Computed example of a mutant assay.
Amino acid sequence: MQITFKQKPVTLAGTQVQVGEKAPDFTVLANDLSEVTLADSKGKVRLISVVPSLDTGVCDQQTRRFNEEAAKLDNTAVLTISVDLPFAQKRWCASAGIDNVQTLSDHRDLSFGEAYGVVIKELRLLARSVFVVNADDEIVYVEYVNEVTEHPNYEAALEAAKNA
């Protein structure tokens, strides 16, 4: 799969996942620097929205969209993961009024990025992508957005979350 950033090819590090696989575990940091793993939301559907940086237009819009939709999803944890520092994520959430999505930082060790194959080696950012993991930790939806500066397919991801 060829991923581009501003129309230039980039290299993704890690192992890309596929529908039907068991979701790999990961350790990321919450805004208070506590560790968060996939197991912390066990028993819920997880909609994982991955963005390069919350401080960019498309990432901002993507996170706001999933924040709005999260309130309508039953038994679903909506996680937004980026390599932004936890302090920056906390500040951004406060200014944007984000309260239905948990923002998580993969800055420390790229644990999530490596496990899901979304680390852009050239930039040390995460490639825009969306994953839905059901309550049994099975991946039921995967989208690696071909051009990192473009939006994901919101409707397909939300539909997958509702049906999980």
Rank of each mutant, 00 (worst) to 15 (best):
Q62L: 04
D84I: 07
C93P: 04
L104T: 10
A96W: 05
A71N: 04
I98K: 06
G57T: 11
Q2P: 02
K44L: 11
T15Q: 14
I81R: 11
V17D: 05
K44M: 12
A161D: 00
F26T: 04
D136P: 03
Q2W: 01
E138T: 15
E68W: 09
T11A: 04
D40L: 00
V133N: 04
V51C: 07
V51A: 09
R65D: 10
D99R: 12
G14H: 06
R64A: 10
F26H: 03
T27H: 02
R128K: 12
D136Q: 15
P52R: 03
V17E: 10
L47P: 02
A160F: 05
P24F: 11
F112A: 03
S95K: 14
I120N: 04
P86A: 09
V10I: 15
L110P: 01
K8T: 14
G97P: 07
Q61R: 12
V119C: 09
E155G: 09
L29S: 13
V130L: 11
A157K: 11
V58S: 10
K42C: 06
D136G: 12
A39K: 15
Q61G: 02
V51E: 09
G14V: 06
V50P: 07
F26N: 02
S95I: 10
E147K: 06
V36L: 07
F5C: 06
V17I: 13
D40Y: 00
A13N: 10
S34E: 12
E68R: 14
T149N: 10
A39I: 08
F5A: 07
V118A: 06
N163C: 00
A127R: 07
N67G: 05
P152N: 10
V45L: 02
E21N: 13
I48N: 00
R65P: 01
L123S: 03
V10K: 01
V118M: 02
S95L: 13
V119I: 15
N67I: 12
R46H: 12
R91D: 03
Q89V: 04
T11M: 05
A127E: 14
S53M: 06
R128P: 08
W92T: 09
W92Y: 13
T4G: 01
A39N: 15
E35W: 04
D60T: 13
I48Y: 03
Q7R: 14
K44A: 04
V58R: 09
K162H: 09
A94E: 14
K121F: 07
P152F: 09
D99T: 15
T11Y: 04
K44R: 12
P52W: 08
K162A: 15
G117H: 11
V78K: 05
N163L: 11
T37F: 00
A127C: 15
N146I: 04
A88H: 01
T80F: 03
A160R: 01
A157S: 14
R65M: 11
A39H: 14
S105D: 07
T63W: 05
C59M: 09
A164R: 00
D84F: 08
G57D: 12
P9M: 03
D74S: 13
L123N: 03
I81G: 05
